[in-house]
Nucleic acid binder design. Structure first.
Lengths: 120, 120, 120, 120
DNA sequence: GTGGTCTAGACCACA
DNA sequence: GTGGTCTAGACCACA
């Protein structure tokens, strides 16, 4: 699935959120599929169930998954989850553009960076 | 100079760092100029001196300013500080590009965002 | 009959209760009519029989249905069930009015909402 | 301030959220005012700090308060918090109207209820 | 079994 | 001191 870096300073719950967002973005996880249960994932990562629970709550608030008490958590329909991910990522990226621009990077600098990093 | 936004969630020390980086990027602050003293800036912003101190330390670590014992802190020569700022901003931005790309934003999406946000 | 929405977060047993209440309110189910057996409904909905049983118990407690040992469950006579439904709904709605009013919605706000949502 | 009912079945964190929403709606708490610290409120209510923390996080997500690490939590500007409260309450109430309407309450029934409960 | 809430208490970054 | 994250583990409703 994905790895956690306990010493990175990034909250573990956020790492779990990001991990699942990537899996979904890559199509490895798709609509309706069952998520691992809170407890099983916690023991798999040797992490507290509360931490996983928090991550799942965040994922649900962002429309990536939905949970059914007593049954489990499930990935939202592809259309829904895909839109949620693209929307979030776009917002985040546009903020980065604004910051870079304010610090004096020119449009050309930014595009050069894209050519280098986001090449097909 | 610049304003602090306590509600933004961004650590105040980071906001101070960013504020000075912007002033320098815009050429409002230039090489050799004296920075306000930690204590004066703290009282001006009604903020804890430790917070300003932390910001100054970060600025120094990034090569934007340098301090002279007993005299105060000064902006690095233009060439030096400018390079430091551009380098930092580029690194940060490229990371944002990678993340956005991994989450499924296409090159076109990214460029569209730049057109919108970084317009002259 | 009616559909269950697993993603809604509303307990399935409550959804079954509400489903039958609506069918009765609409006159699709009327007094004396036999309810589907717990087991048949459970398999029809691919849901745990306990869940259906719980719903039936709630419906009985609210006077919407009654059960006869060895024969099954039946819809209460129209007058009875209709009154039970209206009473419950009224109580619930009045509570919502109180809450909304306490939070600062004016009588006009509330009525505007009714015009919009409960239009013929 | 307000009281908690530990046996009500309503999550304590939600009760705290609702309590502060009411205090704000009533104007007892207004923009910029400092909220009690997580720990002090927890001890005042004899409740775990995590529970208060959760409530504060929810209030922040709803735009009612904002928190500054190291300084405390504060009520959002009146305009902002007021809008957030009215929006939330309206959404909630409209849902109640739909439900009541589906169960057969007529527009007149609903309005009668408003006259009774939301009288000036 | 499964998600969700809660207590008790440690530890961190920030001010 | 203040908010925020986390562990350890209990307990509840729902299925």
């Amino acid at each position: 699935m994905f790895q956690l870096d306990l010493k990175s300073g990034v909250p573990i719950s956020d790492q779990i959120v990001n991990g699942f967002i990537k899996l979904t973005a890559l199509g490895i996880l798709s609509g309706g599929e069952k998520m691992p249960s809170v407890r099983s994932l916690a023991s798999q990562f040797s992490v507290n169930p509360n931490t996983v629970q928090k991550a799942y709550t965040l994922l649900e608030q962002n429309g990536i998954i939905y949970s059914v008490k007593g049954k489990g958590s499930f990935v939202s329909d592809d259309e829904h989850s895909h839109k949620a991910i693209i929307d979030g990522a776009t917002k985040e990226f546009c903020r980065a553009v604004r910051t870079a621009h304010q610090l004096g990077l020119t449009k050309d600098d930014l595009i050069k960076c894209i050519e280098r990093e986001a090449d097909v």
